[in-house]
Design a protein around this nucleic acid. Sequence first.
DNA 1: CGGCATCCGTGACGATACTG
DNA 2: CAGTATCGTCACGGATGCCG
Lengths: 209, 209
Amino acid sequence: MSRRRSYDQYCSAARALDVVGDRWTLLIVRELLAGPRRYTDLHADLPGVSTDVLASRLKDMERDGLATRRRLPPPGAASVYEVTDRGRELLPVLQALGEWGQAELGERRPTDAVRAHWFALPLLRALEGEEGLVEVRLDEGVFHLFVGAGDGPVYGDGAAPAEPDARLALDVATCTALAQGEWGLRDAVRAGRIDVTGDGTLAKALREA
Amino acid sequence: MSRRRSYDQYCSAARALDVVGDRWTLLIVRELLAGPRRYTDLHADLPGVSTDVLASRLKDMERDGLATRRRLPPPGAASVYEVTDRGRELLPVLQALGEWGQAELGERRPTDAVRAHWFALPLLRALEGEEGLVEVRLDEGVFHLFVGAGDGPVYGDGAAPAEPDARLALDVATCTALAQGEWGLRDAVRAGRIDVTGDGTLAKALREA
DNA sequence: CGGCATCCGTGACGATACTG
DNA sequence: CAGTATCGTCACGGATGCCG
């Protein structure tokens, strides 16, 4: 458990950084926004974080009300970490960081790890104004978005937990172009960069664009 | 000069944190958003940062295109650091952090430093929708806001560089209440928590509310 | 005096090994 | 599986010194 090293400034941004400014913390929040995760899963999806730092961060986040730990009912006897409402309120911070970081993203470097759900935030933004459960299929994996949902989970790893209102299949390059505003969502559909399937209102609306 | 320690993730938020995730970096950006600053001024307004870390961060920020260094014409022979356009684009990140951090702010601790312009970001948000040059007077000092300005500087330390469209005098508690949405701007004026002076359209509009 | 560079002690970080 | 223990390295914070 790390000692609290505060900036000691009466400034709300500095206070926020006191809590989430440590290395890895915001990226752990990003992982937990995709749904409850076990320690090992977190460790696997955050290459480079050492086991003790991850354990320490999770303790800090529990203490600070960003995450909770829940024991799963047997069998399994594992425990999962979940983001709290307070932690979920960090979504705008991650959104702002992600939008700024788009310009730094560039080409994928050989040393870069990739996970499908890392594209959930930019896609959520590209789908702003729409509504419904959307399943997204990339080469790197599948995740789903709760578009327009006020609170509760905003996205999750893996296939949609129910019949989605639309299924999108696209590649990372299209994701990036959408995130940078080079393409509009409907432009990309029209250009054949996104394959839209499904019977929901949203799917039909996107196809007929 | 610190070695670049990257997260090595193909994710725009992680890339952003590669650049601005180091300790002090975002707070230096916050300082530079208030206008060009000399090294010594930065060091004075960031209590706790050591001289070498500040120098190292400024170099990193120059290399990363967040800030530039400019030599002042003699006499003085000093140099100032200025935020670049790219650096100024971090404003939404600081806004999001600041809004989240409001809930953590609480009472001022005895160890907390305070500077007047640290309240510029929350006040800018409270003045959203308005327009003009606003001078703000707190007990802790004076700063000014370029409300509704698309690009260029958004706020500055000290008195307004020209005749402001409105002058506001208020205290920190009112700032906090505005930032947390407990009060609307016009409510606070009506309740006498903000003293509005000046002849500009904005001043009149706020007074007659 | 402003703008760092250097040195030093402490602590955070990352890798690996190990344990309940 | 879910961490804890250990250890080498590096970053941070504080003080001081140098140099224009």
